[in-house]
Design a protein around this nucleic acid. Structure first.
Lengths: 333, 333
DNA sequence: CTGAAAGCGCTTACAG
DNA sequence: CTGAAAGCGCTTACAG
């Protein structure tokens, strides 16, 4: 049933070349044959095969995006902005999920290469710098949150984690915990470092048992509540790897009768839409999602065009203070 | 730099046909040439061009999924289950977003067709039955929530909306509102109908000014709070098109000092992960997400294999009662 | 077990 | 302005 350029050529009584040119709006072709062929193509329900076209042009004009898991609102928002800017630049976008698994990530990257995508963006890579040595086997690749990979876009995890923890210190907290994520190595490491540095600089003790590691999900945050409350001296404030963790934690604490922020303050990271709508509204770090998406595509484009020296990019983030943070219990405002 | 089957053939001193067979694990080929060629392919960093292969086999083994917007957690969860089952069946999955726009939906569908995907799943189609007349121009298409399209998978919107509203009636509510979504015509219509039917059957009045229409987002739900409270006699219970709306509404009401469920009860729809983690935990309808994904793929597969009579499928959903619903104010339990 | 040849559906110099 | 021919990178009958 599939109609090809040759089918149209037969009906029109011209050569396939002419049909191809007519459809491609080639300059040197008479206006009426052009019109006639186009009408014919329409009538016959012709849709050009991108497979065949890309094979000869050696270009698919497609960007493949590998995401860890689309159910994280921050990540899906990032994909949305990538999609938008990529489209403006004339690329189609293909999406796949790695589910935080090295093997699946690599599979997806190779599958994209098999489809001959023009470039690849990996969000939350588990391989990171490892792509350097496969560089000439694969299409250009840009990453998120891997500042030691030359083609990476990150938010300033270190600085903004510092801001978040500074905020807690300024409120007077002295027992501050951190719930990290084992799934997102790079960004977790930087945020952890921001946390420890502030405390160290201020001479505030770091309690190893207030340093938890979860998986960046609501369930993970929920589980952290129990662990946190099992301590003899629980934290009075907790900085979380992301908003999902923070919101799960919020709920977990509430179920244990702990009030936020009266008993414990909580800071998240990402500023997902829910952060504003949960209770209490979450103090969090707003990532520059749109700019990150934009830079990921621009950097990829630069690589595609043969530039090498595009350098890792680190974008600033902002602390958004809402109602999940306040002075520690016993300390009057 | 790109290495082809012919490059390998030259190095190996055999014909391209032999390389192709060796790589495809063709039976009639000597074990050592097979091994030698495979090793060579590996060394040379060969990745077969799916473009070329699909062109000749006339099959891409790919399913294209068009989603409205990946930032809705229910939808992204649905995509995850589609991805999983599709992969089990040997298909790759490609994803695109329509952002609730007819033109973009159609663009995406045609783009998928241009890539010669084997089948297409459209989640939240704005075109619905319209695909019937393009049936032989396009690959097989299955839809969600369009029971009058023969290849559709829905949850039982009518019955489960009824359950949700029955639940409110049984608690004693008599002023029950509904916040719908203008973006999701099919399912919204069925849910609205479930709502009106229960009230009609029970002889409970339907107040037109308690029937709001939003867009299925947190912001929409938040905005609904204001509208709802502007009424002289506000509702004592509200059924929402989805959880996003319900959670936004929850927050909006709270900001106006309204307590849930003491002053107003709220029921959502979907049971997204946040439903359990918001405050108060949301009473909602749990959609059979995994089964829906499974059926969407199975039905598509049936169509691909030439079966026609696969019929629309309607799956049951369950009401999950949490803490956002209770008796109306003034009515002791 | 292996090769030569045709062909999938396009595009694009090369002629005219 | 249009056509014949070559070729993109693969697979697969058809011979041997």
């Amino acid at each position: 049933v599939r109609v090809s350029i040759t089918d149209i050529a037969k009906v029109a009584g011209v050569s396939p070349s002419t049909v191809s040119r007519a459809l491609a709006d080639h300059p040197r072709i008479s206006d009426d044959t052009k019109a006639r062929i186009r009408r014919l193509a329409d009538e016959m329900g012709y849709t050009p095969s991108l497979l065949a076209r890309s094979l000869v042009t050696r270009d698919t004009a497609t960007i493949g995006v590998v995401i860890t898991e689309a159910s994280d609102p921050f990540l899906s928002r990032l994909v949305i902005s990538i999609e938008q800017i990529a489209q403006e630049q004339g690329y189609s976008v293909l999406l796949c999920s790695s589910y935080f698994d090295v093997a699946r990530e690599l599979e997806n990257v190779y599958a994209f290469h098999g489809r001959r995508v023009t470039g690849i963006i990996v969000i939350g890579s588990q391989i990171n710098r490892g792509y350097l040595k496969m560089q000439d086997q694969l299409p250009p690749i840009t990453l998120t949150n891997c500042p030691n990979y030359p083609y990476s876009v990150s938010c300033d995890n270190l600085a903004s984690a510092r801001q978040a923890v500074e905020h807690l210190c300024q409120l007077g907290h002295e027992r501050i915990g951190y719930v990290g994520s084992r799934r997102s190595h790079g960004s977790n490491q930087a945020r952890t470092m921001g946390y420890t540095r502030v405390l160290t600089e201020r001479g505030i003790p770091i309690y190893p048992n207030l340093l938890l590691e979860q998986d960046g999900t609501l369930q993970g945050g929920f589980a952290a509540a129990k662990e946190l409350l099992a301590q003899e001296l629980p934290a009075t404030a907790v900085f979380c790897f992301n908003d999902m963790t923070a919101i799960g934690l919020l709920n977990g604490l509430r179920q244990h009768g702990v009030r936020v922020p009266a008993d414990i303050s909580i800071v998240g990271f990402d500023d997902v839409p829910f952060a504003e709508h949960c209770y209490p509204p979450l103090t969090t770090v707003r990532q520059p999602t749109d700019r990150m998406g934009q830079q990921l595509v621009h950097m990829l484009q630069a690589l595609i065009e043969g530039q090498e020296d595009v350098g890792p990019e680190i974008l600033p983030a902002t602390l958004v203070i809402r109602e999940s943070t306040g002075p520690p219990p016993g300390l009057a405002q």
